[in-house]
Write a protein that binds this DNA or RNA. Structure first.
Length: 145
DNA sequence: GCCAACGTTGGC
DNA sequence: GCCAACGTTGGC
């Protein structure tokens, strides 16, 4: 099990839109960055990720689950670009802002802080737990997934 | 809307 | 294979 973070500009693809897709999930398409693509190729079914609103919002608003392994991105004929599918799992009871992440010394090494421009990022297990805690998700809730 | 950071492209 | 030009991302 690995943890990830997916960035989206809410006026292009918002958390509300993701949730509307329900169990079926949706392609995380449109990624045109090798590093981000490589992370998606590493993802396994059942891996969890944060859903982050960039540009507007600047906060982790929910949790998603990988529900399809990397496959060709349907929005391009270019064979270089793959993507996974993700589905919404739950809301962050209390969205975790970028400001709060930056203010937390335990999260100083998070890619969100150090690799600001990367749109798909790995999240370490301890970072995952800490952000969940800040967001109002306790261990009990997390085990329900 | 600005601009810094950074990834990509293409000429040499 | 270097590096300048250019485009994009994303915080502010």
């Amino acid at each position: 099990m690995h943890y990830w973070l997916f960035k989206s500009e809410p006026y292009k693809w918002s958390w509300e839109m993701q949730k509307a897709k329900g169990e079926a999930g949706e392609e995380w398409d449109g990624v045109r960055n090798y590093q981000a693509r490589n992370y998606m190729r590493q993802m396994q079914l059942g891996d969890l990720g944060f859903f982050y609103h960039s540009n507007k919002g600047l906060e982790v608003v929910g949790i998603v689950e990988v529900c399809a392994l990397a496959h060709p991105d349907s929005t391009t004929d270019d064979p270089r670009w793959d993507c996974v599918d993700i589905k919404a799992v739950c809301d962050m009871p209390q969205p975790v802002t970028l400001k709060a992440v930056k203010a937390n010394p335990a999260l100083g090494d998070m890619s969100l802080v150090t690799s600001m421009r990367l749109s798909v990022q790995p999240v370490k297990a301890d970072e995952w737990m800490e952000v969940c805690r800040m967001g109002g998700l306790n261990g009990q809730t997390l085990k329900a997934f």
